[in-house]
Design a protein around this nucleic acid. Structure first.
Length: 111
DNA sequence: GCTATGACAGCTC
DNA sequence: CGAGCTGCCATAG
């Protein structure tokens, strides 16, 4: 299989991530069912332009290395649940199957 | 074919 | 909450 196809798959998934939500490298790799977090990261580093790369974070909520300020700024604008300089994965984690459900009504975000 | 590397993940201290 | 280690997957030298 062409690695380019893999890259496009990754980028496609990233584009589907709604504002205010994020997906971890591992989640994307798991969703695609192939490769691993490192592979997803490699694709993002090379073909990450043109997609909401800031919505792709590490499993622990760590923002993209080298672009933390930029990503953080965008997340603030989108209203992504943040935890200091990290993303609150507990609330921001998103999955393709999960529909456009923003956030659980009963779990309204707390400051 | 082995070693080094990397936008990672999970665990332990 | 930071620092260190091990595990995983693919690519490059």
């Amino acid at each position: 299989m062409a690695d380019d196809d893999y890259a496009e798959l990754v980028l496609t998934v990233v584009e589907r991530i709604p504002p205010g939500r994020v997906m971890s490298y591992g989640a994307i790799a798991e969703y695609l069912g192939r490769g691993g977090p490192r592979q997803v990261g490699a694709v993002m580093s090379h073909y990450g332009g043109g997609v909401p790369w800031h919505r792709v974070v590490a499993a622990n909520g760590r923002l993209v290395p080298g672009h933390e300020q930029e990503a953080l700024r965008r997340h603030r604008l989108e209203g992504t649940p943040l935890k200091s300089d990290k993303v609150d994965m507990r609330r921001a984690a998103w999955w393709p199957e999960d529909d456009p459900t923003p956030l659980d009504p009963s779990d309204a975000r707390l400051p």
